[in-house]
């Protein structure tokens, strides 16, 4: 079936199976930043933004994103690099497999919550699992990144 949506600011018209999940479609399109982890709606590694909202691409059919906008990490490269640097500085980034999903969720968090509490950060990130590190370093990295975003917003 034919599905039309906006992928990273470019309209795409794709032929997909009716039961094809978005993660598979994106990877077939060469968007290999989308990692499939658990493939069971659990780990958050496959997160993309659908109409700006973090969503598990392993769990939404491509047909369901008809007419919507899909954003992967390629479209927020500059922000993603900054987030990756903060993760790296805090030792929160080891194998890096989960980082793409984290970057998109952290980016969305920064847009949705200008001044998040620790509780709000945890609640926003709880659906993204990392099996290398503990979460303390990630929390520190996220807080430092958000502080930078706030500083730039003030300028």
């Amino acid at each position: 079936m034919e599905v039309r949506f906006v992928l990273n600011r470019t309209e795409v018209v794709l032929n997909v199976r009716p039961d094809e999940y978005l993660a598979e479609t994106l990877r077939n399109q060469g968007v290999l930043s989308v990692h499939i982890g658990c493939n069971e709606s659990n780990c958050g590694t496959c997160t993309v933004l659908i109409n700006g909202k973090p969503s598990m691409s392993c769990s939404v059919l491509t047909a369901q994103v008809y007419g919507k906008t899909v954003t992967t990490v390629e479209d927020i490269q500059e922000e993603a690099n900054k987030i990756a640097d903060y993760f790296s500085d805090e030792g929160a980034d080891q194998c890096g497999f989960c980082l793409v999903g984290f970057a998109l969720v952290v980016h969305a968090l920064a847009l949705e919550y200008p001044n998040p509490t620790d509780e709000e950060i945890k609640n926003y990130l709880v659906g993204n699992l990392c099996r290398c590190s503990g979460y303390h370093a990630q929390m520190e990295a996220v807080k430092k990144y958000l502080a930078e975003v706030k500083k730039h917003a003030k300028k």
Binding site: S41, G44, I50, P54, S55, M56, V60, V105, V126, G127
Partner: peptide
């Protein structure tokens, strides 16, 4: 779950 689940 997480926000990426609840958005769907």
């Amino acid at each position: 779950m997480g926000v990426n689940f609840r958005n769907l």
